[in-house]
Design a protein around this nucleic acid. Structure first.
Lengths: 293, 293
DNA sequence: TCTTTTTTGCAGGATTTCCTGCAAAAAAGA
DNA sequence: TCTTTTTTGCAGGAAATCCTGCAAAAAAGA
């Protein structure tokens, strides 16, 4: 390990070298990428001093030293990532591990959420004349979820199915927004639907695991959700959480309209008896009170 | 952000450039330190292609591109470190609040999970001759999710729908397990289906928010999931996480049989081309290696 | 099948980065 | 204070890394 090596030889180093060595340890995140002269400038010594530090520490040259710093950094990164994955050491059962991994995914979402793109998607949803949601196999659960809540707020929301998907895209109005959802191993159908939608010049958005996903290629708006398969299951907690955000974003563009729409829906539900009796009055509409941040 | 930039320009890139770009995104940890020729060798293209990718992406040269990759890496590192520090500080935006609330729900699940009942349900699933999953409206997303993964492992899994639900329960075999999913405000249909199933002496299990739920009255096995409505949305992250556990529990009863079943499925997927090409071989089956705790 | 266009790798020149001899500056010792 | 030793930066050559014209190979189109 580099730290130990430096500590050992520290006293044999010249003042300038010591200063440089300390910088390496304290700012390895930055130093790992610098050239000898850049590092020298940062520390306030000459390029030569930096290079001499490398050989004083026993390295074959400055590039070798820098590589050691890079290893240090990589190790730190993988450790952190491993902690993230397996921090369920104290977790007792397989189940607890599974849940822990979901929590970690959400923490990751929490600190990397692309608020702007979600807000833009919200606006596009509100602007669109009609919305087609595309998702197949396991992702169909997500697609259905999105579809269901968007239907509360907007007319002309459809969940595409295999039988009629192509036709619906073919006939789609220009101001149609297509939202595709798929995660590795991406379903061919979803990929093709989005490709086709793009060809037809519809607005296309994708909810997927990465910008390198095949969905991203056909999509104007890409929203990523960490994809953490759990044994053979794609755990969809993080995507669900993100889809919640998308629905909220879309709802927010409606302003007070949301409350009215929900109130109207509720009335209908009451009349038709979809839900079990003794409804807390105004439940759905009331819940929106805290809705504007 | 580099990912977005690459996603945008992906289709204008040449095949070799695309391959390189994907490598950058997927292996940024490694790529950040490589020179153009090293990277080219890794990816299997020439140094020139790598350098041309840099200018195709709009960078001033390969060093500039590499610096962007380095930034990406640094950001990831600080994010990971931030997550570690993160202990529930006040969330900034509405979205962050929403996610925070999901995290809290999962933490709650983590500490109150009824492992025994989930394991019992897993056994019942494995024992059952056929399985009917019941869920309507928003809960239908959950029902579909459960149905989908159970279908991978068991024959005779069905997702009930309004049109044919009653008939299917009427004709159901004695050893049928009915799993109902509903949350406040409970859908009348689901409640009725379970009531009817109980009358017909089928085994009934419920996934719902509380033991006092109307579903619980008809069910032998009750699994609760915290239900945290978010504005007007029922956030289903916690239920999804619990359903994952149920699927795992059911899969575990199969022992090594799981791997065989998944391998067989995968073969079929390959033949029929459901998923996009270049499948990592044995992906689904391989994932089960770490599956027994 | 043949032509045109695109993509790719190679060669070698341009640029950056690294290394080392040397002398000046600084520090230590007498 | 003067000498000796150590440290430092500079200069310029060595090595690496990067960039670009060109021709071959591959792909697309006719």
């Amino acid at each position: 390990m580099l730290g130990k090596l430096i500590a050992e030889k520290m006293e044999d180093l010249t003042p300038g070298q010591q200063k440089t060595a300390r910088f390496l340890l304290e700012n390895s995140k930055e130093a790992a990428f610098l050239t000898a002269s850049q590092l020298g400038e940062k520390v306030g010594v000459s390029e030569s001093t930096v290079i001499r530090l490398a050989s004083a520490l026993g390295f074959d040259g400055y590039p070798a030293l820098r590589m050691a710093v890079q290893d240090l950094l990589m190790e730190r990164l993988t450790t952190l990532e491993r902690i993230r994955e397996y921090s369920g050491k104290e977790a007792k059962s397989l189940f607890h591990k599974a849940i822990k991994s979901d929590i970690d995914s959400l923490s990751w979402v929490q600190s990397t959420l692309d608020v702007k793109t979600i807000e833009r998607l919200g606006e596009e949803i509100a602007k669109a004349k009609s919305i087609l949601v595309v998702g197949h196999r396991s992702s169909r659960a997500l697609a259905y979820y999105l579809y269901h809540y968007l239907s509360w707020l907007f007319a002309n929301v459809e969940l595409l199915d295999i039988e009629t998907g192509i036709e619906k895209i073919t006939r789609a109005d220009e101001k149609t927004l297509v939202i595709g959802i798929s995660f590795p191993r991406y379903t061919t159908w979803t990929v093709n639907m989005l490709k086709y939608a793009k060809k037809r010049k519809l607005k296309v958005a994708a909810i997927t695991n990465d910008y390198s996903s095949p969905l991203a290629r056909s999509s104007e708006l890409v929203i990523t959700a960490p994809w953490n398969p759990l044994s053979f299951i794609d755990s969809f907690t993080a995507p669900i959480s993100i889809i919640n955000c998308i629905i909220l974003a879309a709802a927010r563009t409606l302003g007070d309209g949301v409350r009215d729409k929900l109130a109207k829906l509720e009335e209908i539900w009451k009349e038709t008896g979809v839900y079990q009796g003794k409804e807390q009055p105004g439940d759905a509409a009331k819940a929106t009170i805290d809705f504007k941040e």
